[in-house]
Design a protein around this nucleic acid. Structure first.
Lengths: 220, 220
DNA sequence: TTATAATCTAATTAC
DNA sequence: GTAATTAGATTATT
């Protein structure tokens, strides 16, 4: 009914969505499939969030395809993120880490003689090792390149501006600039012109640009 | 009326919030304070999002304290993030990067003879260079340490699980594990026991653990 | 295949 | 002490 690419798309859509809304992160897989408890896994509607239908539908599809039953630790985990990050959410649910140790992987601990099979089952290292590769549109890439020409070291606030304008999450912006610097700043001084005439990282090839940021020529 | 620490808290609260909701990222500072346009900066209520009052109040406080007027590029920027990341949001607003180059910093370009003052003004490198340091609660730290003992290399799905349970954003989980590995895995084999008897990174001191992950002893 | 997003180490900064 | 950032190397997707 659902081919592999479809399933993968569903999974990564859910993972991408939960990146913005942690409450929708899917639970770990479990072989004990009791179909009666399937509905218990569908998260309650997050009060107020838009595109509720899309989120719910995606998670529902994911759970249905994987046949994930209601796991015990989920009952003890946080119900809903209160939309305020890092607000000691665990303090009201401190039986997670106080009452027992390692609630997430207690299944693996119990049968510690089949570690790799269990691990591959729980954490499919081939498919979910990395975050799904982000594809940027032509307009997004052009805008990022323009910003890079202006300042290859945007600070947090600048990255937030870029994130707002492009719609790209700020951590992706950070990674994009890291990769861009590795490709272009170093290539400009290193491989293309081995003797370095491009005056950007000339005098200090491996400096940390903290106290006195070095900017392109148009900035002075 | 508002002391510096208060202002800083407001700024970073807003920045943290916009990390989850990019539409609420504050605009860049601007000296042209025309108080009449202040209300134009207050973002429209994001339809449906909870804690609307907190977000609105925070942004309002921030804008009021900074006296930020309605910037021109804000009119051309995205109105509301459509809650689906990386969905070529720019394609419907492609006049941002098509119609003109570098809309975000056109002010600096115009007066390119005062680069550092302008840059310091726009991008206060001392205060907003880095993301505000995240403070983890005792329960969060304990849970992360437990997960680290089980698997110091959690993949994307595992990091999402941890993010869900702890309420910490996934990128922060990633950074936490990076720092923890640098502190503990290397310290265990390097400084404490210089000759390395702890069998974790023994045969391959600088390997990338991709194809065949190495896990602690309890995993085999 | 190439380009590049994501991950990793190691050193470092800064809170 | 530790969260965040950086360079650089590497993996791996498109």
């Amino acid at each position: 009914m659902t081919c592999d690419s479809e399933l993968e798309q569903i999974i990564y859509t859910a993972l991408t969505l939960q990146d913005d809304y942690p409450a929708f992160c899917p639970p770990p897989k479990d072989q004990d499939k009791s179909s009666s408890s399937l509905f218990g896994l569908i998260p309650d509607p997050l009060p107020g969030v838009e595109n509720q239908g899309i989120l719910q539908k995606t998670i529902w599809e994911l759970y249905s395809v994987l046949g994930i039953p209601q796991d015990s630790f989920l009952n003890r985990s946080l119900k809903h993120h209160d939309l305020e990050p890092n607000k000691e959410s665990l303090s009201t649910n401190n039986e997670i880490s106080k009452g027992r140790k390692r609630p997430l992987y207690e299944e693996e601990q119990r049968e510690s003689k089949k570690p790799k099979l269990e691990m591959d089952h729980y954490l499919p290292s081939a498919r979910t090792r990395c975050r799904r590769r982000t594809i940027y549109s032509k307009e997004q890439t052009l805008f990022l390149q323009d910003q890079f020409d202006l300042n290859p070291y945007p600070d947090f606030v600048s990255r937030c501006h870029i994130a707002k304008i492009t719609g790209i999450p700020e951590p992706r912006i950070q990674v994009w600039f890291q990769n861009r610097r590795a490709r272009h700043l170093l290539r400009a001084t290193g491989s293309q012109v081995p003797h370095g005439n491009t005056s950007l990282t000339e005098e200090e090839p491996r400096c940390f640009i903290y106290g006195e940021p070095q900017y392109p020529d148009m900035w002075g």
